[in-house]
C-alpha cells in the first residue's frame, strides 16, 4: 500500500497533469480511507472528471467532494479605489 504522503503527491500531480482535469486549483487531502477534494472548477462536468481521475489513482479511497462550480453571476457592487 502506498504511504499517505506519496499518495497525496500522486493525486496532486494527477489532478494537475491529467488532461481530463488539468486543475492546479483543486486540493486533494488524504485522511485515512478518505480523500477530500476542495476548490473551484468552471462547470459541473469537471467535478465528475475529477472524481474519475482520483478514483483511478486511489481506487481504495472514499471520495468526499467539496469542489464547487464557480459563480459566473454579475458582480454585486464595486470597490472604490481612492
Amino acid at each position: 500500500m502506498t504511504s499517505e504522503p506519496y499518495l497525496s503527491a500522486h493525486l496532486h500531480r494527477a489532478i494537475a497533469e491529467d488532461p481530463r482535469t488539468a486543475e492546479a486549483g483543486v486540493r486533494a487531502t488524504v485522511r485515512g480511507d478518505h480523500v477530500l477534494l476542495s476548490g473551484d472548477v468552471a462547470c459541473e462536468q469537471r467535478r465528475a472528471d475529477l472524481e474519475a481521475v482520483v478514483h483511478e489513482v486511489a481506487p481504495d479511497l472514499h471520495v468526499v467532494d467539496d469542489v464547487r462550480v464557480v459563480s459566473v453571476a454579475e458582480p454585486e457592487g464595486s470597490e472604490e479605489l481612492r
Binding site: G25, D40, A42, P75, E76, S78, E80, L81
Partner: peptide
Amino acid sequence: VAQPIIRSAYTVYHVEPMV
C-alpha cells in the same frame, strides 16, 4: 482577480486618476 476568489463573472474597481 482569480475567479475562485472573486466568485462572479468579473469584479469591478472604480479608480480615481488622482490616486
